[in-house]
Simulated scan of single mutants.
Amino acid sequence: MADFAQNADRSFGDKLLGFFIKEDPASANVPAAQPTPSRVTQPVSAGQASTPAQSGAGSGPLASSPIGSVDTKFVDHFAGVLSKANLQGPDYFEFREILKNLSNLGLPEDKQFQAAWASFKAMAATGDPSVLATAANQYLTALSTDRDAFLKSVDAAMKERVGGLQEEQQKLQADNESIAKQITELQQRVTANTDRLTKITGEVAEQSSKISQNRANFEATYATFTDQIKADVSKIATYLK
């Protein structure tokens, strides 16, 4: 049953894609299950389909929004949303299918709508065109509700993933700034130490010279005293008998 529902949604998705969008011939052979975005030319002449990327609401935390393109996985997703909201009996989608079949006849737009309405009245057994707008608005409400839920999940993902990365980014930047400050302080210490080393080299030579001279003076003075005393001792022994 699940496979049947999935296949039904995919078939409905293919029909939706055909209702609203003309594909380039170059992309016509791309498998429906392939998750790459479909290349799109322009909406069918009978009307335009708005996409979230074209509407101004729901801007996220990103500074700039990328340009979106129709993605087959989202076509399948919206097919599921619209399938759940699908009304019993002929309604807007059947009218849209008739309108699409008339789009290649070269009729003016008003004639296309009038011809489609004439066929739809016979199918739906109603002469009130408001049933189309009522059904279409119900589908718009279903899509809008789904979009709101999707945007909330996008915001949550932004906060969880991008927010976590931004927090790590700020920590790394602060860490780099702290390291850079430490490097600057270390460089300043190296410069100060180098200057001091240069001064110490001169001071060592100066102090060594002073100390060596002081020692030499001490030894010279010592020799003068001891030599005089030794001379006196010798003379005492010679002269005083």
Rank of each mutant, 00 (worst) to 15 (best):
T226P: 00
A53G: 06
G163L: 07
Q166H: 03
K199W: 05
A49F: 13
L165R: 08
M1E: 10
S38F: 13
Q207V: 14
T145M: 10
L102M: 04
L140S: 09
S59E: 08
S144H: 11
E219H: 06
A174P: 01
A53Q: 04
Q112H: 01
V44W: 15
F95K: 05
S69Q: 14
T201D: 13
R196F: 12
S45N: 06
G80H: 05
T198F: 07
Y239A: 06
T41I: 11
I200L: 15
A174I: 03
V162P: 00
V131N: 01
N7Y: 11
E23V: 12
A142F: 05
L62C: 05
A115T: 08
Y239W: 01
F78I: 15
F78K: 06
R189H: 09
G13R: 15
R189G: 02
T145L: 13
V131L: 11
A46N: 02
L197W: 06
Q173T: 10
T141F: 06
D155S: 14
P66E: 06
A118H: 11
V204R: 11
F19A: 06
A63K: 11
A174G: 02
L197D: 07
P129F: 02
S64Q: 10
S178A: 15
M123I: 14
S55L: 15
M1L: 14
E94V: 09
K181A: 15
N86D: 03
N137V: 07
R96F: 14
E23Y: 01
N137C: 08
D146E: 15
S208K: 15
Q213T: 13
V162G: 00
A28M: 07
Q48N: 02
N217Y: 04
F93R: 07
T51W: 14
A142E: 02
Y239N: 12
Q48T: 07
N214A: 14
P37I: 13
M123P: 00
I21W: 14
G127P: 00
L186R: 15
Q207D: 04
L186I: 14
K73Y: 03
D128P: 02
P90I: 00
Q207T: 13
T51Q: 06
K100Y: 08
Q169W: 09
D3S: 14
P31H: 10
A46F: 11
N193Y: 12
A46T: 04
G56I: 08
L140N: 09
Y139V: 03
V204Q: 08
